[in-house]
């Protein structure tokens, strides 16, 4: 639905943030944009949202170039939402409910629909019990989910997540992963920027690797992540399941539990064979 064609962006101070970047978000349902700090991920997102206007190149939505007039952008941003990295910078209200409802009310949606959508979003992000608490009493992870709920309540076709797992503890990270899985199963397109490779490996089905504002590698995560040298060049690391796959000759699993299950099966087999050394091969 969204494509980026030959996009370049230079900031006013002369820093070149994006160079001739071409991406096609029809390649997957949950798409990862990975790259080290300063690779250009956030700048790309701001361009996609129509906040920054590219120097050259174009952003295509449903095969036509997006326009920058107010009305077009207003409708466009009903279809495409974004969750920024720092929750404190995107929550305006002290009250969780009002903050999630904010974008909906700006779109003149009737209040009873607003209410249903907000309550759904609160439920999906597991925030029902804190909805009456003032925002500044919430934990970082809860605030992060408030900002996600704000985007979800808009019922967008596409949601961009800028570094969603940064600064989260393991259980909160797991919650975000679940939210993304749910969005995917609802048929939404999710685009995630991150340098958390394990996170990206777990949730995405197509990835783009950025380096210094250029798109240097793309494809299926389980293929792209095999390319260790290239990843290192980009300042990135393989997900641990891939490292184990490459260095210990076990299959490439997507989930931790699959590896454990596989491993316990091997142990069982080698016990049955009574001392016989079974080479770890999965049938």
């Amino acid at each position: 639905m969204i494509k980026v064609k030959g996009l370049s962006y230079v900031y006013k101070d002369g820093s070149v943030a994006l160079k001739n970047m071409t991406l096609d978000f029809n390649n997957g349902n949950v798409i990862g944009i990975i790259g080290e700090n300063g690779a250009g991920k956030s700048t790309l997102f701001l361009n996609i949202m129509g906040i920054l206007k590219p120097g050259t190149g174009e952003i295509l939505y449903k095969d036509s170039q997006i326009s920058y007039d107010r009305n077009y952008l207003k409708n466009y941003r009903k279809k495409i939402g974004i969750v920024f990295q720092d929750p404190d910078k995107q929550i305006f209200f002290s009250n969780v409910y009002d903050d999630i409802a904010f974008a909906l009310r700006n779109s003149d949606i009737p209040e009873d629909i607003v209410k249903n959508r907000v309550l759904d979003a609160l439920e999906d992000t597991d925030l029902l019990e804190v909805q009456k608490k003032p925002v500044h009493f919430l934990s970082y992870g809860q605030k992060k989910r408030v900002s996600i709920a704000g985007a979800m309540a808009m019922d967008c076709e596409i949601i961009l997540f800028d570094e969603p797992s940064a600064g989260l503890d393991p259980s909160m990270r797991e919650k975000i992963i679940n939210i993304i899985h749910n969005l995917k199963s609802e048929g939404k397109k999710v685009i995630i920027s991150s340098h958390d490779m394990d996170f990206i490996y777990k949730v995405t089905d197509y990835i783009y690797v950025l380096k210094d504002g250029s798109n240097v590698l793309e494809g299926d995560p389980s293929e792209v992540f095999l390319n260790d040298d290239k990843l290192k060049e980009c300042g990135l690391e393989q997900p641990w399941l891939i490292k184990i796959h490459q260095n210990m000759k076990v299959p490439a699993f997507k989930e931790e539990y699959e590896l454990y299950k596989y491993w316990s099966e091997i142990n069982e087999n080698s016990n049955n064979w009574n001392g016989l050394q079974g080479s770890p091969h999965r049938d």
């Binding site: 941003r77 974004i82 995107q90 305006f92 009002d98 409802a101 904010f102 009310r105 700006n106």
Partner: peptide, 21 residues
């Protein structure tokens, strides 16, 4: 810095001058 970021966020949320309180 916060002011700049807030303006960006307000724009993505289609802010039209009304905070609906």
């Amino acid at each position: 810095g916060g002011y700049k970021d807030w303006r960006v966020v307000l724009e993505t949320k289609n802010f039209n001058g009304d905070f609906h309180v």
